[in-house]
Design a protein around this nucleic acid. Structure first.
Lengths: 322, 322
DNA sequence: AAAAAATATTGAAACGTTTCCAATTTGGTG
DNA sequence: CACCAAATTGGAAACGTTTCAATATTTTTT
């Protein structure tokens, strides 16, 4: 593998000059430029990006840390994040934490050692104190405090919207179901919006939560179905959670949407090939991804951001479950 | 940010000694080790991995290049690949090529500049000639020639299995449907196996392919349905393709599995929440991912591999479409 | 207790760039 | 033609590590 030095020798110039040609920095005479370019051609020279990063003390690598890329919501998110990063020549490093605290910390440490330019974090733990100040972070759906900017969908409005849609679809006693994740999770506002709107509209409602991590899903759902057989509407904290409910309810002969209307949250199915097509509160995934990266850029450039939390509007997508 | 030099000064030793403490290479007296460790503590020192990579002229970064992480099969694959890489302290860089030749080449060039330790490629183009010899590559489902090792499922046997299962489920005139991707794609063997088995069993069959890239899916399926209304079994080249077919057929009043039995390939649904649950030829995704990485390790270590292509066995998963 | 052997440590070079200052060349002007 | 400013180029330091030969220290052997 030839280096900039080899190029310089072959072209009969100094390494500094080659560097200037490559980076188009500073002035070089057309004749010199040509000589250098020929040498580069001949030697098949490619700049060593690692040496560059080392010298410049910065890299164009951004890490995305999330529980699991396997999850459809995250893989869609990752898709757009990579796309947006590539526009500016940034690269994406993928870290599956499994949501485990120790793995999150382990990755954080590693990322620090690798001097990544920035981190996009979807974590279960408060990583605020485990990260040095010189590495910009934008989090999705988790709001710790002002050091880490948060991008999320408008969970509160989403909750209100879900309640209204359930009522509109005919539900008289809707329930919010979900698993409690982190206290820092913005997703908990889905519940708050739901409750608030139910109170405002004077609708009877139920909140039935399950502590995370999952112990026994089936038991949870069975208990729910037994204790609240008069529930005729369900707003689930995620689409997957909604799908699980429908599956379990179906086994007990409860039909959706005839007996119970169901609304999820996320909007993971982009193809209408599998059924039931969930009625859901659709997050603007692409927008969230792109905004996250653009905010991260601002932080990388040292700018201060106006807001701590950026909430993007959600929409209701009518499916077959309401 | 403090460097190894700062640590050396504070501990009153040479930088080489600190290096040996950090890397547990060479001998150091317990007393010295303690001094150094204290200094590291005090300064909050973390080794600069970039400087290390630079000096060692190698990194622990492996790139995964695929059409789109959004696709459920790839995101499952990526999940296991990341997991296996992490076991050995390797990191994963994710590159969505969109299957576009120019983007694949662009990424390849970039990866070369970044001196990644290896590449896992799921490409649409023959990248054999666009990659320098000193960067190990393992490809999934694409077999070019001996330079690039290929890991794939046993597509041929999968095709035979699908044909047999269709017949077993009652199909008299099964069809293979799919889009033609690359000539290098091992996935084309799904068709070959299907055809071979049909001939062996003396079953009438149809092959109906659509050139890639996708122009108009709907038109393709409509034509298929019109021209071959006597087809009563379908083996689709992927699960998604199968799902599309079912959707389109359903609109024309064709019921699955009553009128037509359908079998897909991949096994993407890990949760039985959405229907129809496809009958499918399930690829051993986890095994494929882990084997790919282990083979890549061997190549990184300079070992020669025994085979050019590694085919892993598939299984039939009974769903609701046969 | 001296010599030999084993163990620890130091110090400097090297990795491939960028950048900055100084030196040189070029081109224009009077 | 001499001079000056601007343009171009050269050369070397610096980035933070690892590694290796050389030196220093400790332990073992006789």
């Amino acid at each position: 593998m030839s280096s900039i030095k080899d190029v310089a020798i072959l072209a009969g110039v100094a390494v500094g000059t080659v560097s200037r040609v490559i980076n188009k920095s500073g002035a070089v005479k057309p004749a010199t430029r040509r000589k250098v370019e020929e040498a580069i051609q001949e030697l098949n020279y490619v700049p060593n990006e690692i040496a560059r990063n080392f010298k410049m003390r910065k890299s164009k690598m951004v890490a995305l840390m999330l529980p699991s890329i396997w999850h459809p919501f995250f893989s869609e998110l990752a898709y757009y994040i990579e796309d947006e990063l590539d526009l500016e020549g940034y690269k994406l490093m993928l870290c599956n934490s499994g949501g485990k605290p120790e793995k999150e910390l382990y990755y954080l440490e590693m990322l620090q050692q690798n001097k990544v330019a920035g981190i996009v974090g979807i974590t279960y733990n408060d990583i605020e104190n485990n990260v040095s100040n010189d590495i910009p972070i934008v989090s999705i759906d988790r709001h710790f405090n002002k050091k880490i900017t948060c991008v999320t969908s408008d969970n509160y409005e989403g909750g209100r919207l879900a309640l209204r849609e359930l009522v509109k679809a005919g539900a008289r006693k809707p329930a919010f179901i979900g698993s409690v994740t982190s206290v820092y999770s913005e997703t908990m506002n889905r519940r708050e919006g739901f409750i608030q709107e139910a109170k405002t509209m004077g609708v009877e409602y139920v909140v039935y939560e399950k502590p995370d991590p999952v112990e026994d899903d089936d038991a949870y759902f069975d208990e729910l179905l037994k204790e609240h057989h008069d529930v005729d509407g369900v707003f689930a904290i995620t689409d997957i959670f909604a799908a699980k409910y429908i599956e379990r309810a179906g086994r007990q002969g409860i039909r959706v949407p005839e007996d119970v209307k169901v609304i999820g949250y996320d909007g993971i199915q982009d193809h209408p090939y599998f059924h039931p097509l969930l009625s859901t509160i659709r997050q603007p995934v692409e927008e969230m991804a792109r905004m996250t990266i653009r905010l991260l850029y601002e932080k990388i450039e040292g700018k201060d951001l106006e807001q701590q939390v950026y909430r993007l509007p959600v929409t209701f997508r009518q499916g077959e479950t309401t």
